[in-house]
Write a protein that binds this DNA or RNA. Structure first.
Length: 174
DNA sequence: CTCTGGATTGAC
DNA sequence: TCAATCCAGAGG
């Protein structure tokens, strides 16, 4: 994913996501539309950005047709472009920590409240087709940091990738 | 209006 | 392991 801003552009490859389905108690939209989750019920391909814990933002992609509240949370990026800008924004000590976590990548890319509802198919914030390097595999696990629906296997990540956030980076047993 | 708890992070 | 920090959502 890529973000162009007045301070410059920055980009990274998505290496970890979580799905939030309409009938899933952990999904913000599972109990109907509210002022916060409004955009989740809109067009797929729009950004859903929300504020948590009094200090952090998380970035999601709306994925279902209008009227159905579902989204995918982007939890980690492998930083690829303009790491120096990311470093400035994050003040991170190591490059590995630049985008390793949902609120961290939001900070590294310079996203925020203003990006909620933005079209991701055109404009300064876009998601491009992804890829996998030779030998890389996608693993599945329960989602991180939630209570309701914690057993559902809806977290997807590149096994062993160092840019995957806190929580299991490897399949159990590896 | 009041109250509770959270899709996290960084310091200890 | 724990505090920071404030808002969304539910209930009165």
């Amino acid at each position: 994913m890529w973000h162009d801003s007045p301070q410059g552009a920055a980009a990274g490859r998505i290496v970890e996501t979580e799905a939030y389905l309409a009938d899933d108690p952990a999904c913000h939209a599972s109990r109907g539309m509210t002022p916060r989750n409004r955009v989740m019920f809109g067009l797929p391909g729009t950004a859903y950005v929300y504020f948590v814990y009094g200090m952090h933002y998380c970035f999601n992609v709306v994925t279902a047709p209008p009227g159905v509240g579902e989204a995918v949370l982007v939890r980690a990026l492998e930083p690829l472009w303009n790491l120096s800008l990311m470093r400035t924004r994050r003040g991170a000590k190591t490059d590995a920590d630049l985008c390793r976590g949902p609120a961290r990548l939001v900070q590294a890319l310079g996203l925020g409240r203003a990006d909620n509802g933005r079209d991701l198919c055109s404009g300064p914030l876009v998601i491009l087709p992804g890829w996998r390097e030779e030998g890389e595999k996608v693993s599945v696990s329960p989602r991180i940091g939630i209570v309701a629906g914690r057993d559902l296997p809806l977290r997807f990540y590149l096994a062993g990738n160092p840019f995957v956030s806190r929580g299991p980076r490897k399949k159990a047993g590896d």
